[in-house]
Nucleic acid binder design. Structure first.
Lengths: 155, 155
DNA sequence: GTAATTGCAAAGCTTTTGCAATTTA
DNA sequence: TAAATTGCAAAAGCTTTGCAATTAC
């Protein structure tokens, strides 16, 4: 179950003066195992499969550390808790306001926008922390132009 | 202080079976007065200038109503509370992870991306609810490639 | 041994909600 | 008057934090 990505990350933690603890390794493994996005709570659940006593606060603290080191990132997908994923999985999220579906798109789709924004404003778009909303193909097909619909999928 | 946009919105509320109350008008006026984005708390503050007893819960409920009617929208700009603005001011926010600066860009900048995503996935990007992050021109100039920097502007 | 990390419990902050009192139409 | 809206206070949901106990180095 140990992954070279996990080892590399532990290495970076240590290189940064941090300590290589069991809990941190477990959080990393949970992130690797759950290739997609997961909430802190979900990750804690995964971690507890191996480390029954792992505390949610520790998961939060570890995620914060991993983000500081550029190993993991979080995104706010509409409402609800943040979603976490490994930095390597660079993709972006289109969240449907109506049904809550999440469509992922590769980073390269943003290249023209990135260039345009850089040229216009000097702003460098972060390749990780995107989250766009709108309406997914299915909801558009069902009711092409509803403004309110049954309301966005909140909470 | 009364604005034709306020009147039009009150009209829509009434047309939708809602009631034209003092509080709702006050929230609308606060949104108009504060052309840019503001949090619910900030709007409540503005409202209280005229309506000292206006309750925060009422502001939240009014904003929810306005959003349902397509009159106002909220965005999650990184961390902290949601930011609200009138629907007419269609613009998007680039939030600097390092210093927290917010750079606004017009909606048209997204047109090519919008077309591309529609073609690829059928997803219709919402013109309002965007929020992108990255690093602003100033921060990039200061330290062209810091990963951690002094850390993103949290909370 | 010492400094970093963890667990626990409590608090913080934003937002929502139940219900009685008030206001609008 | 009837139905919608408000105020209040409490709760909910996510996240952070203080501090004593534990663990890594």
């Amino acid at each position: 179950m140990s992954d070279e990505r996990v080892e590399a990350a532990m290495e970076r933690i240590r290189a940064n003066g941090g300590r290589a603890t069991v809990d941190r390794r477990a959080v990393l493994e949970a992130l690797v195992r759950n290739a997609d996005h997961a909430t802190a709570e979900e990750l804690a659940e995964l971690v507890r499969a191996e480390l029954p006593d792992c505390n949610l606060a520790t998961v939060y603290r570890t995620l914060e550390l991993l983000e500081r080191l550029g190993i993991a990132f979080h995104v706010h997908l509409g409402h609800g808790p943040s979603q976490w994923h490994l930095a390597e999985a660079v993709h972006h999220h289109l969240v449907c306001d109506e049904c809550g579906a999440v469509v992922e798109v590769g980073d390269h789709v943003f290249d023209p926008l990135r260039r345009r924004i850089l040229a216009d404003t000097g702003f460098v778009l972060d390749p990780h922390h995107f989250s766009l909303s709108g309406r997914c193909a299915r909801c558009v097909a069902v009711s092409p132009s509803s403004t309110s619909g049954s309301g966005p999928a909140r909470r």
